[in-house]
């Protein structure tokens, strides 16, 4: 059967196409990484190997400042969105099907469907209003905005984990004298933990990489790493930006690899 069945990999040109796609995906990234080690200050001419740009970026106060801000926002956003997503996932899976379930599902995943620029403009207008009325400024607006658009990313792995969980385990805990809270803490939560860690990591990465919403919501002096880089591109281009990008890429790759390992099926 398998011999005769249709197989995409056997179509003519499949290998060529696959190679072309991978080149298109990874050539720009490899170029970026390669030029971060460029000794010359040009983005186009190779002047030999050097770690100068890393040293420069490391010493750059603005880069440091933006990096710390990015990490702080990403941490808060990951924690808040994971907590919200966990509650949402429990609320949508631990009960019988109800009317409007799909609607709720769509609502939770709204940030995945609404164009980011629209959310960004909407947040800018709303937060602008709030800032005028309350007079409160600070990082809180960015944290809130990030937490909000990170929810669906945290929600998906947590929901998947919950759906794969045997409901009888919770019944068994109740049978063994566990109160509903004890059942949640002793059985549901430990079994859910890998999904929550995965969700938090995904949220962290999404927050760390965000440009559009941050650019619209941030006040003066609230640059995150991506918006700082965007700002730099408007002025002068040096391989320092490559070095910063490469470091950001490294962090993202490490986190996403961990996410993949955590969500991978055991068997």
């Amino acid at each position: 059967m398998a011999e005769r069945s249709f197989h995409v990999a056997r179509l003519p040109g499949f290998a060529t196409m696959a190679v072309a796609v991978f080149v298109a995906l990874y050539l720009p990234i490899f170029t970026l990484v390669a030029y971060s080690f460029n000794a010359s200050n040009s983005m186009a001419v190779w002047g030999g190997f050097s770690l100068d740009w890393y040293a420069k970026a490391w010493a750059n106060e603005q880069v440091k400042d933006a990096t710390v801000r990015s990490l702080v926002i990403a941490c808060f956003a990951a924690v808040i969105s994971t907590a919200v997503a966990t509650m949402a996932a429990l609320g949508t899976t631990r009960r019988r099907a109800f009317k409007g379930q799909t609607f709720i599902y769509v609502m939770i995943n709204q940030p995945l469907m609404v164009p980011e620029i629209v959310t960004a403009v909407a947040l800018m207008i709303l937060f602008g209003l709030v800032k005028t009325v309350t007079g409160i400024h600070g990082l809180g607006y960015l944290v809130l905005a990030h937490a909000a658009f990170c929810v669906p990313f945290a929600y998906l792995p947590i929901r998947a984990r919950l759906e794969g969980m045997d409901l009888t385990l919770e019944t068994a805990a109740a049978d063994l004298y566990a109160t509903p809270w004890a059942t949640f803490r002793r059985v549901t939560l430990p079994l859910l933990a890998p999904g929550m860690v995965a969700g938090a990591m995904l949220a962290f990465v999404i927050s760390l990489d965000d440009v559009v919403i941050t650019e619209f919501v941030k006040s003066g002096g609230q640059d995150t790493l991506p918006t700082y880089m965007l700002g730099q591109l408007r002025r002068q281009l040096t391989p320092e930006i490559n070095a910063v990008s490469t470091m950001l890429l490294a962090v993202t790759v490490v986190l996403l690899t961990t996410f993949f390992l955590l969500t991978r099926k055991k068997d």
């Binding site: 045997d166 009888t168 385990l169 019944t171 068994a172 805990a173 049978d175 063994l176």
Partner: peptide, 15 residues
């Protein structure tokens, strides 16, 4: 959880 009754489940439901 308030009944002095315990169950052996068909699927065992071990934690």
């Amino acid at each position: 959880n308030k009944r002095p009754v315990n169950t052996v489940f068909q699927s065992y439901a071990l934690f």
